[in-house]
């Protein structure tokens, strides 16, 4: 039995060698087989679409109040009901998509850039620089991330830009550590030694020769990081520290509705479902991406 299997695997590999496929094509083939990851991808695409066109397809304004229509339940006119100020919850969720995605992606981009630079420097040079940078990262990791974000928000005040920075800062250490370890193993390769001998600058070696080889693990981490960031911004919003009103951010909507969980449950259920769905989608997609990018798990 096992012999037969081995033979077939060998046969497949020979086929691949004969017809080399691009990295992306291989990845996509692996991803296609993963139903959960595909589901995640579809949800993400829908979210991205809504982020761009949400305000156009929303039946009502997301910010304009209408006190006469306040606290309505679900109806044909207001699918998800209205909130305390008479704003349509469905429209607010559509319009809020761009804030959650924007904050999620921007915060990850922020921490990715800074984390990658710090991690590369630490991993490539080692020694004292490494010790100093990584101990600072350890200190940051020692503080629970949401607590650190709350502290930063309390210091900066509310606002979209401030939320991005606060959430970005707390995930710097994760990226720094991943990049550092990848760089440490990559820098022992012969091509790095060759690049050094050729007289390339350190920066060129890091960015041209080493980083491209660790990019897959960074991409996976970033995708999963977006889901954490979405959850973090929702948590900040829930605690009343996120964006300024009347911005329809999901976590803020959840926080505003929490006192009415018994009497007006529609106000909390829909933002809750959307947050769960978005986080789940990025997690499933990120996991699928990791499996697809990892040659060891590809069978």
């Amino acid at each position: 039995m096992s012999n037969v299997k081995q033979v077939s695997v060998l046969a497949e590999e020979t086929v691949k060698i004969e017809k080399p496929e691009s990295q992306i094509k291989i990845m996509w083939d692996a991803l296609k087989k993963n139903k959960a990851a595909l589901f995640g991808l579809i949800v993400i695409l829908i979210l991205v679409f809504v982020a761009f066109f949400g305000d156009l397809i929303a039946p009502f304004s997301a910010t304009e109040t209408n006190m006469a229509d306040a606290k309505q339940g679900m109806s044909i006119e207001h699918w998800f009901g209205t909130d305390m100020q008479g704003r349509d919850i469905f429209s607010r969720i559509l319009s809020g998509t761009k804030y959650s995605l924007l904050i999620g992606i921007a915060a990850v981009a922020f921490s990715l850039v800074i984390g990658t630079v710090l991690g590369s420097v630490a991993g490539y040079f080692g020694g004292k620089i490494d010790a100093v940078i990584m101990r600072i990262m350890d200190i940051m990791l020692a503080i629970p991330s949401i607590l650190l974000a709350i502290t930063l928000m309390a210091a900066f005040g509310q606002g979209l830009d401030k939320a991005i920075v606060a959430i970005g800062v707390v995930s710097i250490p994760e990226f720094a550590r991943i990049v550092r370890s990848s760089i440490m193993s990559a820098k022992e390769n012969d091509y790095v030694a060759a690049a050094k001998v050729l007289g390339n600058s350190n920066a060129r070696i890091i960015f041209r020769h080493i980083l491209p080889n660790v990019v897959s693990s960074i991409v996976v981490r970033a995708t999963l990081g977006i889901s954490t960031a979405i959850l973090d911004i929702a948590a900040l919003g829930f605690l009343g520290l996120g964006v300024k009103p009347p911005t329809p951010e999901w976590g803020t909507m959840l926080g505003d509705a929490k006192s009415y969980i018994m009497s007006l449950p529609h106000m909390i259920i829909f933002p809750g479902i959307v947050i769960s769905l978005a986080v789940l989608a990025f997690n499933l997609f990120g996991d699928g991406l990791r499996d697809a990018l990892d040659p060891k798990s590809r069978s």
Binding site: S227, S276, V279
Partner: peptide, 16 residues
Amino acid sequence: KILCGAVAAVMAVSMM
């Protein structure tokens, strides 16, 4: 992370 998301979903359902 999946677990995290699942817990959030369960929470939302239990709220209802």
